[in-house]
Design a protein around this nucleic acid. Structure first.
Lengths: 211, 211
DNA sequence: TTTGTATTTAACCAAACGGTTAAACCTATT
DNA sequence: AATAGGTTTAACCGTTTGGTTAAATACAAA
């Protein structure tokens, strides 16, 4: 008579925890605030989740799967390289526009405790997904479809252009002044322009200097 | 008989505080740890800096100037556009390679307290430096030197490609496995490749799809 | 040597924190 | 209506935290 009904309370707690952890980070978050946000008492919180760290783990593992593994799954899907890159940009930016605080939250918490992340995110799986992509890139190079490029370098360019704007948003807004509305429009237009920047670089780069 | 000699102690404190704040963030940092790191007692810490927040302010304002204002100063220097962009990439990455933890630290702390940042970093000045750059970009477009582009978009691309790799380093390392040595080499090669990516996009982009 | 001032310390404090306990409260089954 | 088990709460606990205090120490100027 428990398993079925308490979906409500447990999910209210998880939703509240997600909100508070994302806003304040693990160190800044307070169990009392999570309890308030969920409309319950602090002791009940510990009844459902034994400790702050355990609650955080549940919340974080879930978010990691939704935002990291989703990206790497597209990265290893069986689409043609160019189409795939366009998808990796457009779908990722689309998702991040709905959750602009996620990239900074995830990266901060991984940096706070890198050892745990490998276990939590099933790093072995992601690593193998990346190797699959890596193979596809080398294939594209061999066939002359794209220029010579290090797959890690390519991945970094895509992740950088997709995610930095959301990570640096508070910084950029407070320093050069940029309304939320303007930011939103900019991100929308970036879905196309970032894809073209990356693909253009792969298909027809002309050396602009040196060796 | 004070002003002259205590440079030693005060600077030892600042150095220790910098290290601890950067490693743990404001919320994770402990005054006791800063005191230990500086080789002094906690009370002496409060003798020199009345509160944790005040000490943090001194440390953070200084770092903000060194890493943000430096970048925006190059951005508004009186060099030709293309040469300037190359400099903005190469010098920024060069600096970040010596201080890889800085971008994530700065962005996290700005996000934690955006209101304060505007005052701290002299946002008005940076904003005017950016307007100067913005004017130069429009000039380059009018003269047909580069393609049509939103200056904010251009700035975001440069900042993204420069800084995200350092921000996402722990994430990427724990997820796809990437040694510090390999990372270092990658960043070194990016000084050239990122500049070419940006400049190539500005000088000869060919539309790869749609309208 | 004495005096005044800068420097350093150990001991202490109140508040906030994560976490526990034991009892009360529902509510469905018998 | 009695029972049993899931659910909720107020009160409490030990620790850690940022911060204070008052006294000791070093040392230059008188």
């Amino acid at each position: 008579m428990k398993e079925e009904r308490d979906i409500t309370t447990e999910q209210r707690i998880l939703k509240a925890a997600r909100k508070v952890f994302i806003e304040y980070g693990f160190n800044g978050a307070r169990m009392q605030l999570i309890a308030d946000e969920a409309g319950i008492n602090k002791a009940l919180l510990h009844y459902y989740f034994r400790s702050k760290e355990q609650l955080f783990d549940v919340v974080f593992t879930d978010l990691l799967a939704r935002f990291q593994i989703a990206f790497f799954t597209i990265l290893a899907s069986d689409k043609p390289l160019i189409e795939k890159i366009r998808l990796m940009v457009e779908e990722d930016i689309e998702l991040l526009m709905k959750h602009p605080e996620m990239p900074l939250f995830i990266i901060s918490e991984v940096a706070r405790n890198p050892e745990k992340t490998a276990r939590r995110a099933n790093a072995a799986k992601i690593s193998s997904l990346f190797k699959e992509f890596s193979r596809q890139v080398k294939e594209g190079i061999a066939e002359g479809e794209i220029r010579e490029v290090d797959p890690i370098d390519l991945l970094m360019n895509i992740l950088s252009l997709n995610r930095f704007p959301f990570i640096g948003k508070p910084m950029i807004q407070s320093v050069i002044g940029l309304s939320d509305d303007r930011f939103q429009k900019l991100m929308k237009s970036r879905k196309r322009s970032v894809a073209e920047l990356i693909i253009g670089d792969l298909k027809n780069r002309t050396t602009t200097g040196g060796k």
